[in-house]
Simulated scan of single mutants.
Amino acid sequence: MIYKKKIIELLAEHIPNAEPTLHFKNPFELLIAVILSAQCTDKQVNKTTEALFEKYKTPQDFAALSQEELAEKIKGCGLYRNKSLHIIKTCKIISERYGGRVPNDFLALQALPGVGRKTANVVLNLAFGKPTLPVDTHVYRVARRLGLSAGNTPRMVEKDLIDLIDVTERGVWHHRLIHFGRSVCTARNPKCAECVVQQYCQRLKKNAQTQIRRHD
């Protein structure tokens, strides 16, 4: 447990400020951007939404589109055909059931087409200031590599991180771990020599122990 606290301290010191990289002006734009971000870079999502939000500003605007029309406008993002269908269905529900406003309830958000646990938590955190800690692929990878969690599902990792991190810090830690996962603890060829927490990293510890056993 001590090594976990040291990792938390060092990462907070090394990355004091971590901001979201998706561009949005309101909860609705955030919801659409996060749906589009699945298997797509934030840079590409921002490029897509810049033109999209200029013309379509409300759930009603999106609900009026056909799947083919929207798919054409978001085809720069992966899985764009499925995403277009989910976005239109979600916008119809928001328009008809919630008066055009994005719900600020976890279960209501997760019930929307194309919205999973991570997306719901991102929207609750960034749009409504709720103390959630969304677990995306970067957070999942970094938490398990460093040894902050041994969970084998995003939900288990989320629970372990929530137990470790103060309620007031959970939002920034989501972005802090994403930043660290993109800049240092990358999926391929992680920059371990540049890592400020390498002495506490459980992945490196296990690798070192494996090397010792091989030479015994």
Rank of each mutant, 00 (worst) to 15 (best):
V123D: 14
V197A: 05
L148N: 01
S66M: 12
S183H: 07
N207A: 14
L36P: 10
P154A: 00
N125T: 15
D216E: 11
E54A: 13
E96K: 02
F106L: 05
P16G: 08
P190H: 07
W173F: 12
A187N: 02
F24S: 04
M1V: 09
P113I: 13
Q110C: 04
R117W: 15
L148M: 15
G99W: 05
K83I: 13
L133H: 05
L65P: 02
C201G: 07
A12C: 00
K57P: 02
R141L: 02
W173C: 07
I165N: 08
A111F: 03
K57T: 15
I74L: 14
R176Q: 11
G76I: 06
A108T: 03
Q67W: 15
N207S: 02
A193C: 07
V139D: 09
R170C: 07
E158C: 05
P20F: 05
V135Q: 01
D216F: 15
K55S: 12
Y56G: 01
S149I: 07
Q39I: 09
I212V: 15
L146G: 00
P134H: 03
L65K: 04
V139R: 04
V167E: 14
R101L: 08
T90I: 01
A71Y: 12
L177R: 08
A64G: 04
C201N: 14
E169Q: 11
A150C: 10
L107I: 13
R141N: 11
K47E: 15
G76C: 02
L22I: 15
M156V: 13
A120N: 09
H175Q: 09
E19R: 09
Y3A: 03
L85T: 05
L65R: 11
Q202L: 14
G99E: 01
D42Y: 03
I7R: 07
I212E: 10
A108E: 15
F62M: 14
R144Q: 12
I87M: 05
E9H: 06
G78F: 03
V184H: 03
E13P: 01
Y80S: 04
L109H: 05
L146C: 02
N104L: 01
E194N: 05
E158N: 00
H14L: 06
E9G: 02
Y140D: 14
F24M: 09
H138N: 10
L112H: 03
V167A: 07
G76S: 11
R81A: 06
M1Q: 09
Q60F: 05
L112S: 02
L31H: 05
D136Y: 12
Y3W: 08
Y80P: 05
Q198G: 00
R117E: 12
Q39D: 12
P190V: 05
H174A: 06
T21K: 14
G147C: 14
A64C: 02
T48E: 04
H179I: 10
K130Q: 15
Y200T: 08
